[in-house]
């Protein structure tokens, strides 16, 4: 029964983006992967949602600056379980070009359990889609 449920559920992952102080490069790449017809991820059942309460897979970009950290944690707590976090770009993974900046305390996985890392500055659309596919596999096992 759980197997059957997982096979149904994995075809409806809804995606939510959090910008944690990103330069917008990764955000543009994320928007193009799901929103332009060329890479049409809606055929996999994916959908961008506007509200964190509807989300299953969270894409976080940016180096988690000191100002935005509390807000990111609050939005993360609002996302209903089961959920999966994908760190997009090099910034949330290690700080990237902003590493050792005065405004960055630590990388993302010091605050939130990160399931998939997608490095790059910015990552290619194919890499982001691959990261989402890996995230779906992790996510369905949580049901």
């Amino acid at each position: 029964m759980a197997e059957f449920l997982q096979s149904i559920v994995k075809r409806s992952p809804w995606i939510y983006r959090i910008n944690a102080g990103s330069c917008n490069g990764c955000d543009v790449e994320m928007a193009t992967t799901a929103l332009i017809p060329r890479y049409d991820v809606e055929r996999l059942g994916c959908r961008y949602c506007g509200s964190p309460k509807h989300a299953d897979i969270v894409l976080i970009s940016g180096p988690v600056t000191a100002v935005v950290r509390e807000k990111v944690l609050r939005v993360y707590d609002e996302i209903p379980n089961p959920k999966v976090v994908v760190a997009v770009g090099i910034c949330p993974i290690s700080g990237g070009v902003f590493r050792e900046s005065y405004s960055i305390a630590s990388q993302l996985d010091a605050y939130i359990p990160v399931d998939v890392n997608v490095p790059g500055c910015p990552p290619r659309p194919q890499a982001i889609i691959d990261g989402i596919a890996m995230a779906i596999e992790i996510w369905r096992k949580k049901f």
């Binding site: 449920l5 149904i8 559920v9 049409d40 809606e42 059942g45 299953d56 209903p80 049901f143």
Partner: peptide, 21 residues
């Protein structure tokens, strides 16, 4: 000119949502 989701996609969405917190 996209492939689009399968026709039964809303059923899947409803099943998934009912399993969420």
């Amino acid at each position: 000119r996209r492939v689009g989701p399968p026709i039964y996609q809303p059923c899947i969405d409803v099943v998934k949502l009912s399993q969420k917190e």
